[in-house]
Design a protein around this nucleic acid. Structure first.
Lengths: 238, 238
DNA sequence: ATAGAATTCAAACGAGCGTTTGAATTTGGC
DNA sequence: GCCAAATTCAAACGCTCGTTTGAATTCTAT
């Protein structure tokens, strides 16, 4: 039988809590988040999930496919929610331009809902997602690229209408910055304390985090495009 | 003798190009960037550097210490440059408040200089750094936290003066977002194509990247703090 | 030229890795 | 109640990992 000692210090799921596939996904979500893909062994993962070592290969094929399954389980519904929410807002607007804020909120709200829903992985999953964005493994990058393509495409069109002063090219860059700040921020656990010693009073709270992030990102998106004249100033010595 | 075949497809350094320690650091910088810390083996690293396998442990102790040495070599001078540049600007301003742009540029310029200096690792190192920010390994997080503490502290004080409408707490968050967008952006290699299909005409260019990032971040920093009244709107369904 | 320190080297160590196997067990339709 | 399919299981396979070792070699100061 599988040892019932924790992998390191972490959770061991009750053997009766759910079926094998779900227990594996739950343990993988937690361990991949904590240690990353490469540093998480299938042995620690299966013992945390209280399943046999071979169960991962039986149910998912390989470790890589398991990782993709972990992401898909939460990501597909969240991105679909984003697409649906944007479509509804566009219908409500009746062809008129929407505000930049509204579009951005439509992106953030499904993430916020997911973060608050412990049954869907909650904060754990968002942090895992933030980490996955920065993982150098090609299979992860390609997978995420495919998962996000449709959603990002739709939002890019919406933002283009809301921010007519931006070229498509400029907007592409800014959406990149937005996703960067978002994923980096969500990935932070202890990392929040990296530069900031948070007061113990205000504990880590994803909702509050997104509320602070939103005005920052809206202002960035609305910023005037870089003037030609400023370029030299940046690269000169001062 | 060490095999002279490349680790995967990558560079093999000329055995006479530099001393052993430097060759190891150079190969490590490149491979850690490409594959991440866990996924880079000392065997592929030492063969790419054309040194004996045991040389890493002899010169650096452990793989973790090697990683820290790779970061320290570039990071210490860059952050010192940032601190010095800020101090000079503050002296020039003679106690009067500096503009937000100037402070941010003082942060970005040393990074830009490093990116353009191939002898100091260039773009490779900045991408490695961006990846390191998102790595879950505790020893990396603690190391970076210590490396950045002084620099971030100085800039926080400067920004506080430049942005008096922000509370210290609010600014802490915004600097977190700034570092997020910056590191995520710098970490992108192929990742730039993640959401954006860059035109072949405009090839990847760190200088241009920072020029686009700067106005985005300045606008975000200057954004008015989140009004109480908006909070509910974000968390409600629409 | 030579002693002693520093470095390089081939080889091995023990451990952990992802995956496979084939038998044992459980499950579900008839 | 039974048989076949699905699942679980212990064990092993082949491989790679970071690190250590002790001898061989190179460097340096006298």
């Amino acid at each position: 039988m599988a040892s019932s000692r924790p992998a390191r210090k972490s959770v061991v799921l009750d053997a009766t809590s759910a079926d094998t596939k779900t227990r594996i996904l739950d343990a993988a979500e937690s361990l991949f988040m904590e240690h990353g893909f490469e540093a998480t062994s299938l042995r620690s993962l299966t013992s945390a999930a209280s399943v046999n070592l071979a169960a991962v290969n039986y149910h998912f094929g390989t470790k890589e496919e398991l990782f993709q399954a972990v992401l898909t389980r939460r990501l597909d519904p969240m991105n679909q929610e984003r697409i649906d929410l944007l479509a509804r807002l566009e219908r409500d607007a009746g062809g008129k331009a929407m505000s930049c804020e509204k579009i951005l909120f439509a992106m953030l709200i499904p993430a916020l809902r997911l973060a608050r829903d412990e049954k869907r992985g909650g904060k754990n999953f968002l942090r895992l997602l933030g980490r996955a964005y920065a993982d150098p493994a090609p299979f992860i990058r390609h997978f995420l690229s495919a998962q996000y393509a449709e959603m990002i495409g739709q939002y890019k069109e919406a933002f283009l209408k809301a921010l007519p002063q931006l070229s498509r090219h400029e907007l592409t860059w800014r959406l990149h910055f937005v996703m960067g700040a978002l994923s980096y921020t969500l990935a932070g656990t202890d990392a929040v304390k990296l530069f900031a010693q948070m007061t113990a009073a205000e504990k880590y709270d994803d909702e509050l985090l997104l509320q602070r992030l939103a005005p920052f990102l809206v202002a960035g998106l609305k910023a005037p495009p870089l003037a030609e004249s400023r370029k030299l100033e940046l690269v000169s010595g001062e």
